Amino acid sequence: MDFELTEQQRLVRRTARDLAEEQFADDAFTWDNIPLENAKTLADHDMLAVSLPEEYGGAGMSALDAVLAMEGVGSVCPQTANTIHAACFGPSRAIDTFGTDEQKAEYLPPVAAGESVIAIAISEPEAGSHATSMTTSAEADGDEYVVNGRKAWVSDSDIADAFLTYVVLPDGHIGSLLVDRDTPGFTVADPDGNMAGEPQSELYFDDARVPKEKVLLSGPDAFKKQITAYNIERIGAMAKVWVAAKWTFDEALEYAQQREQFGQPIGEFQAVQHRLAEMAMRLKTSRLLIYEALADDELPSRIDSSLAKVYVSEACQEVVDDALQIKGAAGYVGDTPESYIYRFVRGFQIASGTNDVHRTMIAKSLAESGYPE
């Protein structure tokens, strides 16, 4: 089995890193949310919508290529790497996979140009990991749906132009609508900052009127299809986590080689050496799980998505924690990148379904199908 990247894939990662060093290094870790101006720079160099189709402004490459671009950019500025995730995974990928030609033509080109962000709205105050208990509903009224309900903890809400919104449709099945920000009856609340300082909002639907052509998925199998597409969003999110953790590892490794105590670099002490070794093993295993889930053109399976989600989010949290321990006060005191990354990475044991729920899903899959070969 060949685990080697192709030369083209290595070029994607190298080109992305070179661009980031030239354009983004000076402003790294100064952003409160997705740095849209950096997204436009990436788009100008065909490094933003890496995996979206060329006909809609993307580069027409694979999801793995998008992760490699994230790695290259993230080695300099992890927050800018998140713009690639926003363009290539989540709602954009769902629209590319399931959308009509008209929906793709409307929503994907602005995303590919770095001019637009589409957020996803699933969770509700009483329906978090148990998404199927959602109550936000849509009733048919002529050529429109009238939507009522409430969504919570919606990321990118402050900058999103549209929201891929999961709702209960008139047939009783959960489907999804593309809700534009200026939709009558739709309100985006002022955002609250999460622990990492990133804005998240509640959404309110008060007889919001959404044209029926904005339906992305409907019918008995709509929710299953949506979750299948969301599996790749989870893998993309874990790539964000890995990128951030790898940045802290690189910084800790360099610091250990330069920082001297007791007459020698701290990297010569076995306790620090063992931390670095463990960090490298966790990062290596995490990246293999991400790469394996994206190895072919199919959407990741449920169990591959859950395995990666649980392991990567927890292993990378340990990497960041060890990096902080190695840097000591230099990483802990003040508004440091390590402080931000520590809080940022921690959120992904909660987001995209809690790790507790995913462990249950893994166990159920094992009981039904055995070990995933």
Rank of each mutant, 00 (worst) to 15 (best):
Val357Thr: 08
Gln23Arg: 15
Ala39Glu: 05
Ile326Leu: 07
Val154Tyr: 05
Gly334Ala: 03
Phe3Val: 08
Ala127Pro: 14
Ala244Tyr: 00
Pro265Asn: 12
Leu203Asn: 04
Ile120Arg: 13
Asp27Arg: 14
Glu106Trp: 02
Gln317Tyr: 05
Lys284His: 14
Thr100Lys: 00
Glu21Cys: 13
Met61Thr: 04
Leu253Pro: 05
Ser365Asn: 13
Gln270Tyr: 11
Val179Trp: 04
Val210Trp: 03
Phe348Arg: 08
Leu324Tyr: 02
Gly328Ile: 03
Thr135Ser: 14
Val272Asn: 05
Glu55Arg: 14
Ala59Ile: 00
Pro35Cys: 10
Val76Phe: 03
Lys225Thr: 04
Glu102Tyr: 00
Arg10Phe: 04
Met361His: 09
Leu203Ser: 04
His173Pro: 11
Phe29Asp: 11
Arg181Pro: 12
Phe249Gly: 08
Thr136Ala: 14
Thr136Asn: 09
Ile174Met: 11
Gly74Ser: 05
Val215Trp: 01
Tyr107Trp: 06
Val312Met: 02
Ile95Arg: 05
Val154Glu: 07
Ala152Ser: 14
Ala49Asp: 04
Pro211Trp: 00
Ser92Gln: 04
Gly58Pro: 12
Ile120Leu: 14
Ala138Pro: 09
Gln23Lys: 15
Ala245Pro: 12
Glu4Pro: 00
Glu37Cys: 04
Ser201Gly: 03
Asp158Arg: 11
Thr136Arg: 07
Ser306Tyr: 03
Ala222Pro: 15
Pro91Gln: 05
Trp31Pro: 00
Ala162His: 10
Trp153Cys: 04
Ile341Glu: 07
Ala113Ser: 10
Glu55Lys: 14
Thr183Val: 15
Gln9Met: 07
Val67Gln: 02
Met70Trp: 03
Ser339Arg: 11
Asp171Leu: 12
Gln261Thr: 13
Thr228Pro: 01
